[in-house]
């Protein structure tokens, strides 16, 4: 497994309705970590009209963009829980015993975890 890449992001915490109404350009990956919590990977600006919100730059994630084959070979054997079958989808759970998130689309996968765990996950997937 190659070294993880940093994933500069924007973190937006706001009401579910506010987050539902947000839009972003192509090339941006927006992961809904919770109903009130959004992680936007890539360059994005968020405009919120007087809504209570917490918007913070977030350098706390690192990860791997993978092809479906790479994901099946390197990651799937370390996932001891049922992955959702729909696409695109965000799944969250332990990968090789490390808290991680998995973003799955039809043509690629993103495995990400907190930077604090990235070394551990990389070693376990090696």
């Amino acid at each position: 497994m190659r070294a993880p890449e940093s994933l500069p992001a924007l973190r937006v915490v706001a009401s579910p309705a506010t987050l539902d109404g947000l839009a972003w350009p192509d090339g941006v990956t927006a992961l809904r970590l919770a109903t009130d919590d959004l992680l936007i990977i890539g360059k994005a600006m968020v405009a919120l009209d007087d809504e209570p919100a917490i918007v913070e730059k977030d350098a706390g994630y690192a990860g791997w963009w993978l092809t479906p084959d790479e994901f099946a070979d390197a990651v799937l054997p370390h996932v001891d829980w049922a992955l959702p079958v729909t696409r695109p989808v965000l799944a969250q759970g332990l990968v090789a015993g490390v808290p991680a998130k998995i973003w799955l689309t039809d043509d690629r996968a993103l495995l990400l975890c907190a930077v604090a765990y990235a070394h551990e996950l990389a070693e376990r997937l090696a």
Binding site: D80, G97, V98, P99, A116
Partner: peptide
């Protein structure tokens, strides 16, 4: 087999 120790975090200053 396939059981991992708890993952311990590293600070960026590790």
């Amino acid at each position: 087999a396939d059981v991992h120790l708890d993952a311990f975090r590293r600070t960026p200053l590790h």
